[in-house]
């Protein structure tokens, strides 16, 4: 037996992996058990479909072309959602980088823009979704705009903060090396802010998914959010549950990929932390 305090006792790698997988396994079995239980009472139960039913439903959506359009709906939904998400996040990230850097680095830009960005970031984006539909129509643009409006202010404020947090000594040092304002921005600030941008994007991806699914639920003809809200009418849990799991998996993979990309591109950023 170990005499260490609890706070000093760490699981081995194998044990940690097992402990990490355990809750998922338990969830899996609890679900199966609950599903069996309900179906013994009512074979037509829709709330907790068996895995075989989920498999059948997903086979139809992912591997069979739709009878009506000839498309593979699941992949079409995934493609549409990911396209909206990446365009929206791309625009938001570009705005965040340019404006965050400008506001953080140049007091004369910050003075007029900083209060405005703060005010915009306080508007609940869902409250202006109708305005977006009126302005940009019910097509792709309004969905992408919702993501941009929901995420860009967070990114701008965060990157402005990160810019201001860089040691002042570096700005002074650059000036003593003869840098002008532009050179300080492109050679000292920008390269150090980019990994922080990737961090901020990772953190705001959850928010972006929220706005994407909300917009798709309200006005769309495809997309992961659209499908979930469409089949809700038939209580088709055999579609909703795998879609939710799929969205979660996509979110996890994006986050992981961005982390690996950041570590690969900017090893110095991870050095002292």
């Amino acid at each position: 037996m170990s005499h260490q305090r609890l706070i000093n006792r760490k699981p081995s790698r194998a044990l940690a992996a097992f402990l990490g997988a355990l809750p998922f396994l338990m969830l899996f079995f609890v679900y199966q058990w609950g599903s069996d239980l309900r179906r013994q009472e009512n074979p037509k139960d829709k709330l907790l479909p068996a895995f075989t039913e989920i498999g059948t439903a997903m086979n139809e959506l992912a591997l069979q072309p739709s009878a009506r359009t000839g498309e593979y709906l699941f992949w079409q939904d995934t493609g549409s959602s990911l396209r909206r998400l990446s365009i929206g996040m791309g625009v938001a990230a570009a705005l965040g980088l340019v404006l965050g850097l400008a506001i953080g680095a140049l007091p004369l830009v910050g003075a007029p823009l900083s209060p405005l960005v703060t005010a915009i970031s306080l508007i609940p984006p869902m409250a202006i979704l109708p305005i977006l539909f009126i302005l940009f129509g019910l097509d792709e643009l309004s969905k992408i705009m919702l993501i941009v409006i929901g995420v860009a202010p967070i990114l701008i404020r965060d990157l402005c903060q990160r810019t201001k947090e860089l040691p002042r000594e570096q700005l002074v040092k650059a000036q003593t090396l003869g840098a002008n304002s532009w050179q300080v921005i492109v050679r000292v600030l920008l390269p150090q802010i980019t990994p922080r941008l990737l961090d901020a994007v990772r953190l705001s991806l959850g928010t972006a998914w929220l706005f994407l699914i909300a917009a798709e639920a309200i006005a769309s003809s495809d997309g992961l959010g659209y499908r979930i809200f469409l089949v809700r009418r038939y209580m088709a849990m055999d579609v909703i549950l795998p879609y939710v799991a799929w969205i979660t998996l996509l979110a996890f993979c994006t986050d992981w990929l961005l982390l690996k990309l950041n570590q690969r591109l900017y090893p110095w950023y991870y050095a002292n932390r």
Binding site: P167, E169, Q170, V172, K173, A174, Q175, T176, L177, G178, V188, P191, Q192, Y266, W268, Y269, A271, N272
Partner: peptide
């Protein structure tokens, strides 16, 4: 009124660019 290349500086830390 501002730093320039005729006056060099070394601080106790943060003097070099980490990137």
């Amino acid at each position: 009124q501002e730093p320039g290349p005729d006056r060099g500086i070394v601080f106790q830390k943060y003097s070099v660019f980490p990137h």
